[in-house]
Design a protein around this nucleic acid. Structure first.
Lengths: 387, 387
DNA sequence: GTGATCCCTGCAAAGGTTTGCAGTGAAGTA
DNA sequence: TACTTCACTGCAAACCTTTGCAGGGATCAC
């Protein structure tokens, strides 16, 4: 009673039943051959495997998901896949997931909070958990959605939820201190999206660092976190009279440099620019970008680990007796903060208050502190941090 | 007999049955309310919808997929998500798919043919079709895999399968003619991955164009299609003595420029460089890159359309009576070729055989403005092609 | 009043897999 | 020999939804 098909067309779906018939065992034995091999006689096992191989059998994940309640998929919601900040994170997450026999479902929201919410809903039933990267929606909405599907949040702090954070506060501080050490006193911060946690953190840290370093911080923004966003504020930056700029991210910094160039303002001779992220591109533009390196790969891996760990504790869809007790208790709510690193390249240079080069600190000018050497507090590694 | 859970934990999965009970109808009516609303009384419908909304019901796609044989997902297999060429394609595909109520499952193969095959297998049962972008595996393997799941191939020609191609042959020709028009006679082609269709097409077209233009073409490669790949051949390019280079893609071109710079070779004064793709980055490097713009967004949209069209013809998993007749016949095998466009920017300049400046002839020097550019065979649009 | 038509709804099977339980036969123990 | 243990396998329910079929009223025409 097999359906007549030529070799040309799409293969007739071969099910566990076909394998069972071919190898002369019950379907449950075939099932066990795949999901609990130790329970089946080695002899039977090889025969079943041979038949399965022969027929080209592959388990139907939808059916499996239906009964186990676990899809072995995870969702990855990204603010903007075209932002080079994300691909390394995605790659790392995918690779980590693959090691655990999970697949990753990537979706892009175009920085749109509504699309984010919609995507979480849509994904909820076909994944075991969702990684929310740089979300733009409100904390309360995130909390609410987390009741629908296990969530791990990246680049956002949400109390009660597992989060992977990058210490951009520390990074911004290091950047500001670096600029102050170079003699800059008027510094601008190019803000990113209003609803970005990173944006708020940077702003706070930069303000503190500027104040304690005796510099004045001008906040410009919010801006789109893209080259265009940076390009658009170039004129504003020039008119503001600042001599140094810390941008929300590398793309914006690069766009700004481009825009300043068009206005005849040279970087770093007239204005110093620092970015954040250390995307590959930042090594390729002229001048090469000084930037705060963020450990994107590590973030992706960590996020997957946290999600899977949480998942294992409480299998979804569990309803049988006893499920109620395990349900809703063991939520991992760990928050991981990853280090950032200031990488000094060519887009920052001495400011108007730079002291002339001198071997040992003899504090001249209006800047009587800074004991030993330039006030660069952070290790300026030559490359991005690894893990 | 409801499981006791606090409001805190993950929500108890609410099924069609719960909605049925709450609204006092049979589950089939609830089902129809969602999948065939016109079949149910408006009054009933609103009541059911209200209950569903109230309980937070969302259809279980796994169960639906099990019976309909359609997951409403499509897979998107990408050679390297970190290559800026792909994100616009992904975005376009996602958006197009979303309009048709499909989700996109993105996976990255790291340019590894084995990973590609594995991913197709893994995806086969949980998507309705797969988009294979710039595959690195063999044609015969692709054909074989296409029997397992509907496939649309992008950037590769496979007879018998629907393909979306970009006319890189035309692009390479235009680039070579542009270089010859500038007075270059020794031109290098930086090859990409050996198994790349694009690579072969470019090579063939470039060779023909060079021959008929009286230039000599040196092929260097294969190389990795990345900045690193370009960086690594810089020395080879210098020693080869050519004055112009056509690179496999923009990343490689940018890496090459970087490498030449490090060797003290100036672009475009000493060597002209042309890339392919017109990634956003190519507008931001110095010098701005002359490149062959490829319509990536259009490719993504077209590919999704072709896949869905093919899908609609033959629902997968169909087994009932009559399925055999419809199965395996109506495979769309259309092949779409999309236009490319040469975009002239600052990385190409006059070669050693350039004619001296003349009022109405070829403009020499880095002077970019010329109304009706002679010597420039292709329309030099200022921006990427739209659609 | 009878029959036909139509709209709406319920019934039940089906889809592919997992898994608790029970059954089988062989080996080991007393 | 009788009993226990053990390894393996079969049985059947369950997961959640869709869908062909049939039933139940109501409406309408004759």
């Amino acid at each position: 009673m097999t359906v007549a098909t030529s070799d040309e067309g799409p293969a007739v779906p071969v099910t566990i039943r076909d394998v069972a018939r071919a190898s002369g065992v019950h379907i449950s034995t075939v099932s066990r051959t795949f999901s609990a091999p130790h329970l089946v006689n080695p002899e039977t096992r090889v025969r079943v495997l041979a038949c399965a191989e022969d027929l080209g059998y592959r388990p139907n994940r939808a059916a499996r998901a239906l009964i186990t309640g676990r899809t072995h998929n995870i969702g990855l919601i990204i603010a903007d896949i075209a932002n080079p900040f994300f691909p390394p994170l995605i790659k790392a997450a995918e690779s980590q997931a693959r090691h655990r026999d999970y697949h990753v479902f990537v979706a892009d929201t175009n920085e749109d909070p509504t699309a984010e919410e919609e995507l979480v809903h849509a994904l909820a039933k076909q994944v075991d958990g969702v990684l929310l990267c740089s979300p733009r929606m409100s904390n309360s909405l995130i909390e609410q959605l987390s009741r629908e599907v296990p969530l791990v949040v990246v680049n956002r702090q949400v109390t009660g939820l597992p989060c992977v954070l990058m210490d951009v506060g520390q990074g911004a501080r290091a950047a500001i201190e670096h600029l102050i050490g170079l003699g800059h006193r008027g510094i601008a911060l190019l803000g990113g999206p209003r609803s970005s946690w990173t944006n708020r953190e940077m702003r706070r840290a930069a303000a503190t660092a500027a104040r304690s370093g005796g510099a004045e911080l001008t906040v410009l923004g919010p801006n789109a976190p893209t080259e265009t966003g940076g390009l658009a504020v170039a004129d504003q930056v020039r008119r503001s009279g600042v001599t140094a700029v810390l941008a929300y991210n590398d793309l914006m910094a690069i766009g700004l440099i481009e825009g300043l160039d068009a206005l005849g303002v040279r970087v770093p001779q007239e204005v110093s620019v620092v970015g954040v992220d250390d995307i590959a591109l930042s090594r390729l533009t002229r001048p090469k970008l000084t930037t705060v390196a963020t450990p994107t790969g590590a973030a992706g891996r960590t996020a997957v680990d946290m999600l899977l760990q949480q998942d294992i504790e409480s299998p979804r869809g569990a309803r049988g007796p006893g499920a109620g007790t395990a349900l809703g208790v063991r939520r991992t709510t760990a928050q991981v903060m990853l280090q950032t690193d200031l990488v000094i390249r060519d887009s920052t240079g001495p400011g108007p208050h730079a002291r002339p080069a001198r071997p040992l600190a003899a504090p001249p000018g209006p800047d009587p502190h800074c004991p030993a050497g330039p006030g660069v507090p952070t290790a300026a590694t030559g490359d991005a941090v690894a893990s």
